[in-house]
Nucleic acid binder design. Structure first.
Length: 667
DNA sequence: TTGTCATGCT
């Protein structure tokens, strides 16, 4: 060990330490002028420094021309440093520490915690190890603050074994040591061990405080252990820790991750103090389980209470807008981002592209895309998927080529987009080539989704036999999506016999789901075999097959209205139904199936027509695939009422205008 | 002087 405080002179120490330092950070870094530590710029100058008349004095002070015995000065400086947001903090603190040693000042137990914290924040493990050796040499390894900070450093650097060793060998460990170990295990990816440590701690009759509980709760959330979570909640109540915002947030997150969103929400409602973490946890908790309307509702409440959203909130909101087709709110978020100078690159930009694409504004998505200076695989993939959903296969492929040219590596989702684009554009050969090359050329192994895309592609093109052969040759078991997509193709090409075979497979896989029955009954209908269709519907009723209720959304003046088939709960239900009946009257010629008259998309369109200005395009988001009947009716509505109607169904966009649809009957 | 909560894009 080079550094020996008792025997070496200050200058020898200096040299040895310099040697150690340079092995950790490059000499170039050390030669660079010391960046001005930001604590010198702030108002919170350490008292001993604020006496300095100006910054230059302070700098020269730091440069080492001052009083060589002021240990307190250096410790204070180091402590201020560890709170600063200086980017070169590790180097800066090392240089200050080095100067201190150079002056022959012997660090004490107050010096190390802040230094260790800086290194921990930057995951500077090697630098931390050097400090550890200094600590041992100085005999400061019996100080609880020093040891706790060392433990923490090793934990965040992934050296949980060293953390545990320190903990085990340290007799004076306190509540902070226990909490540090718990957090360490959790952060290192061992939530189970974190909980075990907590149990052991309680068995030793130590009393957990809010910080400990928050730490265990986060491990508990990761484990999804509701039972433990509830007993921790009880502990919180008994020990009156519920006013602690950290504890509250940890409880909200725990309930949300354990699948009890309503308990989380109830707790959130009762929190005496909330911060941005509380709001984000709750909003993103709703997003996580697909409760987008509730996420947006909560976001509105957050706005009303004057809480400023951050980037995380906004991506959650954009995500919800994308799912619901809530274009107005999405645009508001876009404006908010611009107004507040929030960087539109990166995740937020990607979320914006996705939102515009999913809300039917593919042009706007492209605009945001083009304006982004940094584009990554998410950016390209969002845009490619957007084009695919809009049936713009060539645009998608062109973008894919751009992406390769620029050197952005496609991943498995990109290929879903590329194959879907080929499928929707009828580019079978091109698509098959991509599929064959994706693993060899791009290192992306095809997964079931990709096989599904190929089946879909072949099926749409009417290559039903090829599709069937392809399924049989797949190295993975076909799932319900694959069979469903082939059955859909049978429907398009009125292939009753093949359809019947596939339906059997599908019913076996998902006996209680409607998909197979609905497709088959449509297939019979399209082949004029109405009796068979009726038989299928009867079987469905008898087998109590569960139906996913059709649901359509339309946003009017920033509010998303939801309609379900036959639903009369809307305040304007009377006018809406009058309008729907008007459709039926005026479109009699189409001989539409009565069953479909009150389909959710018709209700949404009727509401849109009576509540928006004449030239406004209507944008509908539907959870299922549009049925043939409604597809025909909407085409006629677009002509009769002279409205552009954009419908996003489960699979793609339909832009209806002047009696035509952008999908060219191909969906 | 030390330890606590959460999170985003395809």
């Amino acid at each position: 060990m080079a550094f020996s405080p008792s025997s070496s002179s200050p200058s020898t120490q200096h040299l040895h330490f310099l040697h150690q330092l340079t092995s950790i950070i490059s000499t170039d870094e050390l030669k660079q002028p010391l960046p001005l530590p930001s604590f010198l710029k702030s108002n919170s100058l350490p008292r001993i420094l604020s006496i300095s008349a100006n910054l230059a004095d302070a700098q020269s002070f730091l440069a080492g021309v001052d009083n060589p015995t002021s240990l307190l000065t250096y410790s204070t400086v180091l402590r201020s440093l560890c709170r600063s947001s200086d980017k070169n903090l590790v180097v800066t603190s090392m240089v200050v520490y080095k100067e201190m040693l150079g002056k022959g000042i012997r660090p004490d137990n107050f010096t190390f915690p802040s230094l260790l914290k800086v290194f921990a924040n930057s995951r500077a493990l090697r630098a931390g190890e050097v400090l550890h050796s200094h600590i041992l040499k100085l005999g400061l390894d019996a100080d609880v603050y020093v040891i706790n900070n060392l433990m923490s450093l090793y934990a965040v650097c992934g050296e949980i074994g060293s953390t545990k060793k320190l903990f085990d060998r340290f007799p004076e460990r306190d509540l902070v040591s226990w909490t540090t170990l718990i957090t360490g295990y959790k952060k290192a990816g061992f939530p189970k061990e974190a909980v075990q440590v907590f149990v052991q701690m309680m068995n030793e009759n130590l009393r957990a405080d809010g910080m400990t509980i928050a730490a265990v709760l986060s491990a508990c959330a990761e484990l999804g252990d509701l039972q433990l979570g509830r007993s921790l909640h009880k502990y919180v109540d008994v020990h009156k820790l519920d006013s602690d915002v950290f504890v509250g947030n940890a409880l909200v997150d725990m309930y949300s991750k354990c699948g009890h969103i309503d308990s989380a929400y109830k707790l959130f409602g009762k929190m005496p103090v909330r911060n941005i973490v509380s709001w984000n946890s709750m909003i993103l908790g709703f997003v996580e389980i697909g409760e987008f309307s509730r996420a947006l509702q909560l976001f509105r409440q957050m706005q009303c209470e004057g809480v400023q959203p951050d980037g995380f909130t906004l991506t959650g909101v954009l995500n919800s807008c994308a799912s619901l087709g809530a274009l107005d709110l999405g645009r508001w978020v876009h404006a908010y981002i611009s107004r507040n100078g929030i960087r539109g690159d990166g995740i937020i930009g990607n979320a914006l592209v996705n939102m515009y694409a999913k809300c039917g504004r593919i042009d706007q998505a492209r605009k945001v895309f083009d304006e982004m200076s940094h584009k990554d695989v998410y950016t390209y993939t969002s845009m490619i998927l957007g084009f695919a959903m809009h049936g713009r296969g060539e645009d998608a492929l062109e973008l894919f080529a751009d992406m390769l040219r620029i050197g952005v590596k496609p991943n498995e989702v990109t290929f879903v987009g590329v194959l879907a684009a080929c499928s929707h554009a009828g580019l079978v050969d091109v698509g098959l080539r991509f599929f064959e090359n994706m693993s060899i050329e791009y290192g992306v192994t095809p997964q079931i989704e990709h096989y599904g895309c190929v089946v879909d592609m072949l099926g749409r093109a009417g290559l039903l036999e090829e599709a069937q052969e392809f399924i049989l040759s797949m190295p993975v078991e076909p799932d319900a999506f694959i069979w469903g997509s082939l059955l859909g193709a049978c429907k398009n090409y009125s292939e009753v016999a093949l359809g019947e075979t596939i339906m059997k497979q599908l019913v076996e896989l998902e006996p209680d789901k409607e998909g197979a029955y609905v497709l088959m009954s449509n297939l019979y209908a399209s082949s004029n075999r109405h009796d068979d269709g009726y038989r299928i519907r009867k079987t469905m009723r008898m087998n109590k097959v569960r139906k996913t209720p059709g649901c359509s959304l339309i946003e009017v003046e920033g509010i998303v209205h939801e309609f379900r088939k036959g639903d009369k709960s809307h305040p304007q239900a009377k006018q809406i139904y009058a309008m729907v009946d008007e459709f039926a009257d005026r479109l009699k010629m189409l001989l539409s199936d009565k069953e479909c008259h009150h389909h959710s998309e018709r209700l949404a369109i009727a509401f849109g027509l009576i509540s928006t200005k004449p030239n406004m395009p209507l944008r509908i988001t539907k959870n299922l695939r549009i049925c043939d009947d409604c597809h025909n009716v909407i085409k006629s509505i677009s002509e009769l009422y002279d409205r552009e109607i954009v419908v996003r169904d489960r699979y793609r966009f339909h832009h209806f205008k002047d009696g035509l649809c952008s999908c060219n009957e191909f969906w």
